[in-house]
Design a protein around this nucleic acid. Sequence first.
DNA 1: CGTACTAGTCTTTTT
DNA 2: GACTAGTACG
Length: 809
Amino acid sequence: MSIYDGLNERQLEGVYQTEGPVLLLAGAGSGKTRVLTHRIVYLIEEKNVDPWSIMAITFTNKAAGEMRERVDQLVGYGSESIWVSTFHSTCVRILRRYIDRLGYDNNFTIYDTDDSKSVMKEICKKLQIDTKMLKERAILSAISSAKNENISATEFALQTVGDYQKQRISRAYMEYQEALRKNNALDFDDLLVKTVELFKTCPEVLQAYQKRFRYIMVDEYQDTNSVQFELIRLLADAHHNLCVVGDDDQSIYKFRGANIRNILDFEKVYPEAKVIKLEQNYRSTQNILDAANAVIANNRGRKEKKLWTTQGGGSLIHLRQFDTAYEEAEYIADDIAHKKKEQVLDYKDCAVLYRTNAQSRLLEERFVVEGIPYQLVGGVNFYARKEIKDLLAYLKTIDNGKDDLAVKRIINIPKRGIGATTIQKVQDYADAHEMSFYDALCIADRIDSIGRSAVKLTPFVTMIQVFRTKVKEYGISGLLRDILDTTGYIQTLEASDEEDAKDRIGNIDELLSKLVAYEEAHEEATLSGFLEEVALVADIDGVSEDDNKVLLMTLHSAKGLEFDYVYLAGMEEGLFPSYMTITSDDESEVEEERRLAYVGITRAKKDLTLTCAKQRMIRGETQYNDISRFVREIPVELLDNRPLGRKRYDSDFSILSDSGMSAFSFVERYQSMQAEKERSVPSGLSVNANRYDSDSFRSLQYHNRDTVFDLKKPKSRSGDTRLKDLYGISSGSSGVKSNFSGVSGLSKGAQIGSSSLNYVVGDRVKHMKYGEGTVLKLEKEPKDYKVTVSFDGAGTKIMYAGFAKLQKI
DNA sequence: CGTACTAGTCTTTTT
DNA sequence: GACTAGTACG
């Protein structure tokens, strides 16, 4: 009995085809990881390939660890010398050795998005870029896109002729790279770009790696960007033993530069490539696969694939719609709790997936209430928290004095009475003498302009120096303890009346344990090593299968994972697909969302539940969204529309009714109701309303939370009576300003705004985010008008007129 | 120099 | 609604 017996013919083909370029088109759940691990085992055991000359690139550290583990189980030796890691980690490893050849120090620091933003902020100030017109974020994302295409600052500059905006970005790009170089720092994209640059400028380095890596494998190939492709191409150039594994239907990272052409055009770049399709699915039931196939079939320009399984149909896909997002969360929590009680499932078999991180809050609250253990993946990164960033900045300063950003972050934390003016003076001096900020600090007593403030700076510098000398004695965890003691960071936190001081201290404890764990795992635990690991962790990396917890995460984070029970929450137009993509001119954006839906559906092994809410609060705004088009793309016979066994859900909307009404008849009914409403509202009514200052507005929103709107039974009929008669406000032809009294209970009083409603029911209007739409309804609220608009792209929304800032068109 | 409050922005997804 | 940057004031 051989270890390859369990593989099907196609999979074996992928295992045995070790030489030359191979494209493994692997549908979801088709066992691609199995092929990859067995391929590695085959290379080592049957082909006597030295594990040292095998490189495998995965998408996350977690995947890398799992692959190594699996190979370990099969081979039992040598797996530790296989180079398995992510693109970013791979590059860091190479750059740590050779980046001095590009004029950086080998102990460079890695900047996260926050760090980059701080740098960019200063640059904008320096270049006098009005960040209202051109946001730091926008500049950074332009730079990032350029880097993903391997376009350097100099090359970028060449493409800007005649485009003023681009020229500004180009200047900023130049300055940004210069600042990073000065700080001896690289951002995420630089890790890739600089490695490619290194290979191109130092052929001997490239050759050394080419010689070493005789077999290269890349997982999740559909999500590689142009630089990553370039990197792989360079590395594989000597032996051409490149095996890429991916699924074009699961390409979901276009927004960060992934180039789907990499996988679609693989055969063009490598005409001799062997293409193997894996279509047999070992993960899900036929019903789930049918749903996934049906949804993804709506995309164009894909490599035709159809997943199949020998498993039976399985249970139908559950579809539930609720009045509010609260009820949605309640249902999911209840359902899991119920099934757990019945011993149908264990917590760890479940995952709740959603489109946006913001959706996690309600779910979390509900899980807490019901006492269901859960783990949240993503959201605010642990290492992005303030207290953690502070302490990391200490470590960075001690590790790399050139990192001005880190030094400036902590120089006055905890408070040392060093203010912005002093910092600016030191910076000016550093600029004038072309030295780092920290070096200028060291000689602060000799800088005239600083004067008496130097007394405050010297102890800081001394402290850092002492840390540097002591780190060798007590190791890195000892260093952190010393930092905490010496600075009194925790005491300061305790003394502050901040509510979450306890949480923060808890986080610090966690950081400390992470340091200890790092020391235990690495014989030569260095500060740089730890900081690097920290910079490159993905949220998902912290997830362990041993914990018996329900996982909550975004669809993006769920890629590559599988669960018996999957809940896809928030299946609503405008949320998923997001209004950004619906309103975009680029049609391919909705296709990317559809791929995301495909990823979500195919995570489920046994049971899939789709939920949505009629009403949902997003960024303080109540939205009413239609059921997602992706749900409608699922053949109705795959969906259950029966009520659950428990009474309380029977009253859920019509899809749950005994009448056997399907989701589609629900949608139809919903639409006809919309149309009905449109007809019943009088037209030709023009109203001038007042706008309120932000104070009154806040209370409006608050009020809004407690109000349950119901599209079926409008609370107030804006129907037959003219608004002005009803509410005693003057109305008239558009453009006439009017006051309206009778607003009470507002602390600052409702100021009479200058804007007015110049649209009426039936008018076409434009919204900043949702684009164009038709006004369906205007309702008077105590403090503002509630406007119902059916947007062409983004569905129907109810919003407050004062907030929505609708333009008549 | 430190604070407390205000106004503005925002997120769709992340190595 | 949540968070952050900016500002006015002590």
